[in-house]
Amino acid sequence: MNIEELEKEKNEGIDSLPLQERRKFLKMGLSVTGVFLGGSVLSLTSISHASNQKNADMDIPAEGQYPYPKHYGMIMRQNRCVGCELCVEACKQTNHVPNDHGAWRTAIQEKITTENGSEKREFRPVLCNQCNRPPCVRVCPTKATYKDPETGIVVMDYKKCIGCKTCMAACPYNARYFNEEKYAIDKCNFCIDTRLAEGKKETACAAACPARVRIFGDLKDKSTEIYRLLHTPDSKIWVLRPDTGALPNVFYINA
């Protein structure tokens, strides 16, 4: 079609479009860009080995497609965060995070924008994304950081860390820091040693959050809240820096 002729056409707008048509269009667009609708979590980023080979249209991943016996992840209900930083404090206490030289395992980022003359504050909790294709693990010369084969959590073996800091440079999320006490690089490990090992079901940050922003759990387990949230139809879910191909396991929604 001639583009010049097309430009002369009157814009019909979207009001006359049937709802079904609009949804279909949105779904198509969002699938293409990697952001999914209808809970098709696999189409987004996270589980590189997991795919639904039985039925491409089915949203729920087939059993046995996750690479780890337990596949821990976290979903952030970002709009609920008020920036109280109780999570940050709980993390510091639980995981003995030193107080200086930029050490933190989780943080709350803040953005202030002005909308219609009024100031709008937005908070975003961040932590290690426990990626499925973790750039930090790939670059480590001595396997001092690796994916825990049981949980998929990216963990540290401090004694092997030579302190080359390549993992810090490789991380798209600025999630790693130099721990002066251990004289090694350190990071969030979903409290695998300090809480999960004791049988607790939540990380310290998730447990401390008064607004229940952080929902932690096994992505495979259909009974978990994270599973339910990730598979809620029509919810918009996103990850940070999907362009890096790291396949993060920390998701964000407004719910």
Binding site: T142, K143, A144, K160, I162, Y183
Partner: peptide, 18 residues
């Protein structure tokens, strides 16, 4: 930060993808 660890773990725990 810890070159002494490098001398040991570069040999006994090499990462060929690195």
């Amino acid at each position: 930060a810890s070159p002494h660890r490098m001398l040991l773990y570069n040999i006994i725990s090499p990462n060929p993808l690195s």
